[in-house]
Design a binder for these strands. Structure first.
Lengths: 106, 106
DNA sequence: CGGAATCCGAGAGGATACTG
DNA sequence: CAGTATCCTCTCGGATTCCG
């Protein structure tokens, strides 16, 4: 994000390993850290937290701390994040149609 | 591309440093390697050729060799590449509107 | 002209272990 | 519960040099 081309920044961020999956989980409801962790099989807490931090820096995800001991943290999409996820979904529809034309020949 | 999630693959590829710029240059016309190189200030031939190779693997760009000595190579978007670029352009419109909401606070 | 070969640095992603 | 701390690997981007 922020090397002069906003567009590329959005694609790069959403192209990261867990960004889309995180946004899909958060779409429509806030979730706790551990909820996300179990909803995303294979992610480690370190990887998840750093992915969430980048999404938070981009103001696509919001982090709400409601209690400090025991810690209660909820993650949610911001309005921008929800709006972006809708756009991504639209592009996913395109990929369903043209996706077979692209990618390595396997 | 091809880790089970086509969508992320497309985003990751288009999120790379030169992919979008290459597609923008190739949109509507084929170009020679050296044309691309001068049209994209700051790119080295190694970086450009590896970026083109990845786009070619994804079948978004086509490489045509018309002469071997002296070498004449033309790059062009495939139909899938042109179609994808239109989709990307649509998302770029979204970013023009909502883009101010995202990104680091500078 | 259109690259390939080599080397380097940065950052994403992952495994494992530990903590307030 | 919600992370942080290390350590490792891999890929992209870049600089430089060389080649048919």
């Amino acid at each position: 994000m922020s090397d002069g081309c906003q567009v590329r920044g959005v694609f790069a961020r959403m192209g990261e390993r867990w960004s889309l999956l995180i946004c899909r989980e958060l779409n429509g409801r806030a979730m706790r850290f551990s909820e996300l962790r179990t909803a995303l099989p294979g992610v480690s807490s370190k990887v998840l937290s750093s992915a969430l931090q980048r999404l938070e820096e981009d103001r696509l995800v919001r982090r709400d701390v409601t209690c400090s001991r025991p810690p209660r943290v909820r993650y949610a999409l911001t309005p921008a994040g929800e709006s972006l996820y809708q756009q991504v979904t639209a592009m996913a529809e395109w990929i369903k149609i043209y996706g077979t034309l692209i990618g390595p020949e396997t």
